[in-house]
C-alpha cells in the first residue's frame, strides 16, 4: 500500500508552525484578562455594594469549579486564598455570588485565625451558564476578588427525578481530623439533610413550594466560634461544607445548623491534639 505517507524527518515543518501556535497562545492569554471595567464583580450590584469604592486585588484568591457541569442542582465549588497578607492579618470573610441566579448571593463565610488554611468547599445551584464570583475580605480590610465561568448543560442522559428528600434538618454528618499537632490545619467535612427549598419551585400541582432553607451554620471549639456560614437559596439541597481548623488545643467541637423555621440541629465531637 505505497500511497500512504509515512513521516520522514526531512519533511518536518516544526519551527514555523510552533511560532504560529505561540502567537495564538499569546493572543488567547490576552483575551483571558478582561479589561478592568468589565470584571464580573463590577457588573453585579450585590458584589459592588459589598466592595463599595475599594478596588479588589485579583491575585491570591481562586475559585475551583468545573468548566462544564451536567447537573446545575449540585455544582462542586472550592474557594482558596493563598495570597499575601501583612503579618497578623487573616481572611475573615468570603462572599460567593452567582451573577445569573434569581438571587445572586450564594453564601457568606466568616473565618478566624484558627482556620489555619483558607480553603472552603460546598455545592451550589446554578440556574444557567454564568459567572461565579468570590470576594474575600481580610481582618485589616484588604479585598480580593475572583470569578469563574461555569457552563451548565441539561443532559438528556442525566434527567433528574429527584430522590426522597427530608422536609427538616436530619442526619447531621461530620468528619474531623485526628492526630493533628497543635496549630496544624486539618480538614473538616459536614453534611446535613435538608431540602433547601428556594421558594421559587412549583410542586406537581403548580403551587409554589414555600422557601425553607438552612440559614446559618456555625462551629465552635471549647465555646469559641471558629467558623460560621450564612447560607442562601443557591446552596444545594443537603448542604455540604468542607473547611479547615488549626486548633491549638484538644477540646469539644460543636456544630450547629439553623433553618429559617427556627429549627436547629447539633453535633458534638471530641478533637484530640497530639
Amino acid at each position: 500500500m505505497p500511497s500512504f505517507r509515512f513521516a520522514s524527518h526531512a519533511s518536518r515543518r516544526g519551527p514555523l508552525r510552533s511560532l504560529v501556535h505561540a502567537a495564538a497562545g499569546l493572543a488567547l492569554a490576552a483575551l483571558a484578562m478582561p479589561a478592568l471595567a468589565n470584571e464580573p464583580w463590577q457588573r453585579l450590584d450585590a458584589a459592588q455594594s459589598l466592595l463599595g469604592d475599594s478596588e479588589p486585588q485579583t491575585q491570591g484568591l481562586t475559585l475551583d469549579l468545573p468548566h462544564v457541569s451536567e447537573d446545575g442542582s449540585s455544582v462542586p465549588l472550592t474557594v482558596i486564598f493563598d495570597g499575601e497578607l501583612d503579618e497578623g492579618d487573616y481572611i475573615e470573610r468570603i462572599d460567593l455570588f452567582a451573577n445569573a441566579n434569581p438571587s445572586p448571593s450564594i453564601a457568606t463565610f466568616h473565618l478566624t485565625p484558627l482556620g489555619g488554611k483558607t480553603e472552603i468547599s460546598t455545592r451550589v445551584r446554578l440556574n444557567e451558564t454564568q459567572q461565579v464570583i468570590a470576594i474575600a475580605t481580610s481582618q485589616q480590610g484588604e479585598r480580593f476578588a475572583t470569578a469563574r465561568e461555569v457552563r451548565i448543560t441539561v443532559s438528556g442522559c442525566l434527567v433528574r427525578n429527584g430522590g426522597e428528600m427530608p422536609d427538616s434538618l436530619s442526619n447531621p454528618r461530620v468528619s474531623i481530623p485526628s492526630g493533628l499537632a497543635a496549630g496544624e490545619p486539618g480538614e473538616v467535612r459536614t453534611l446535613i439533610n435538608h431540602p433547601m427549598e428556594t421558594g421559587l419551585r412549583e410542586d406537581d400541582d403548580g403551587n409554589v413550594v414555600p422557601r425553607h432553607i438552612v440559614e446559618r451554620f456555625s462551629v465552635s471549639l471549647n465555646g469559641d466560634t471558629v467558623f460560621e456560614a450564612e447560607l442562601r437559596q443557591s446552596v444545594s439541597a443537603n448542604p455540604y461544607l468542607r473547611f479547615f481548623l488549626a486548633p491549638q488545643e484538644s477540646g469539644e467541637v460543636e456544630f450547629t445548623w439553623q433553618d429559617d423555621s427556627g429549627e436547629t440541629a447539633r453535633h458534638v465531637a471530641e478533637l484530640d491534639i497530639t
Binding site: R5, F6, A7
Partner: peptide, 17 residues
C-alpha cells in the same frame, strides 16, 4: 503526536504524517 509537524509515532517505531 506532534501537532507542529503533524506526525503520529506508533509503537512499531514508524511515524505517520
Amino acid at each position: 503526536i506532534d501537532a507542529a509537524t503533524r506526525t503520529v509515532r506508533l509503537s512499531t517505531g514508524s511515524e505517520l504524517e
